[in-house]
């Protein structure tokens, strides 16, 4: 396993695209958060909403490069045929797959942390001085939101890895991942029945997972922050299992 990890890490660091995609994640997250915090109407009493959630809004965009990175980790090997080399060198496919997942987790954790902290910093600088309502990592719910958002990005990466392993084509995988993420909130916005709306928000990987960013009005959420992240984790686990199983049983 140690050897497999070393091999995967070497693969990851010796091509330029992962670094660029991580930088893309940071840039996209911070940029969208900065835009969101600068356009909101704030008064001395507050900004009419959850400022923590608002500052972390950049992950709506920042998760896209994470998804591409995760998809390319495996589908890049399929399109070049390198997957055969990989599986010849590491015949235990479960080990090879786990090594990929772990390496991806580490890389996204680092990039995601930088992105999320950058977004919070941008929010602090841009939002007007809110006194004791100012964003602070010392605040329990805010810390949970920040930490949880990094976990969310990792889960999105793992979900994408699982789907890409099952699908084996990068374009189709990215389409499926972005579809899963973005289409649920669009449908739940147009469905008028509140029960259906709530259900969709509870099962959608993005809407549910981003409940982890809520710091106010927790009782009005369709599900609690950690339960929401749990839903996303469920999606990621299911995708990884499906991908891992197909990798084991299929010819390459």
């Amino acid at each position: 396993m140690r050897l497999a990890l070393h091999a995967e890490w070497t693969k990851m660091r010796t091509v330029a695209s992962p670094l660029w995609l991580l930088l893309g994640t940071v840039a996209a997250t911070v940029a969208l958060s900065a835009v969101a915090t600068s356009v909101v109407n704030c008064t001395a009493r507050g900004c009419g909403g959850d400022t923590t959630k608002l500052s972390l809004m950049g992950v709506y965009l920042g998760q896209a490069p994470v998804a591409i990175l995760a998809v390319l980790v495996i589908s890049g090997e399929y399109s070049s045929g390198m997957i055969r080399t990989t599986l010849t060198a590491m015949p235990r496919r479960a080990t090879a797959f786990a090594a990929k997942a772990i390496t991806l987790t580490g890389v996204v954790a680092v990039g995601g942390t930088v992105a999320v902290l950058g977004a919070v910093l941008a929010g602090r600088l841009i939002l007007p001085d809110l006194g004791d309502q100012a964003l602070s990592l010392a605040d329990g719910p805010t810390l949970r939101a920040v930490f949880g958002t990094v976990l969310y990005l990792i889960l999105i990466g793992l979900l994408s890895l699982g789907i890409a392993t099952a699908v084996r084509d990068s374009a189709t995988s990215i389409g499926i991942v972005l579809g899963l993420l973005y289409i649920f909130p669009i449908i739940s916005g147009t469905i008028s029945d509140p029960d259906w709306q709530r259900l969709l928000q509870q099962i959608a990987p993005m809407s549910a997972g981003l409940a982890i960013q809520a710091t106010t009005d927790l009782h009005s959420l369709p599900l609690s922050p950690w339960a929401g992240l749990g839903v996303t984790a469920g999606w990621a686990t299911a995708a990884l299992l499906a991908g891992g199983l197909l990798l084991r049983v299929r010819d390459t």
């Binding site: 909101v40 809004m57 965009l61 896209a64 591409i68 972005l178 973005y182 909130p185 669009i186």
Partner: peptide
């Protein structure tokens, strides 16, 4: 390269809609 192309096109067309769908976005934005 398909991955970059697919992401760019999706983000360019779908993301604006999601931004629009955020209720507290000021009308001008």
């Amino acid at each position: 390269h398909s991955a970059g192309a697919v992401t760019t096109a999706i983000v360019a067309i779908v993301l604006p809609y999601i931004l629009i769908a955020i209720p507290f976005m000021p009308a001008s934005v």
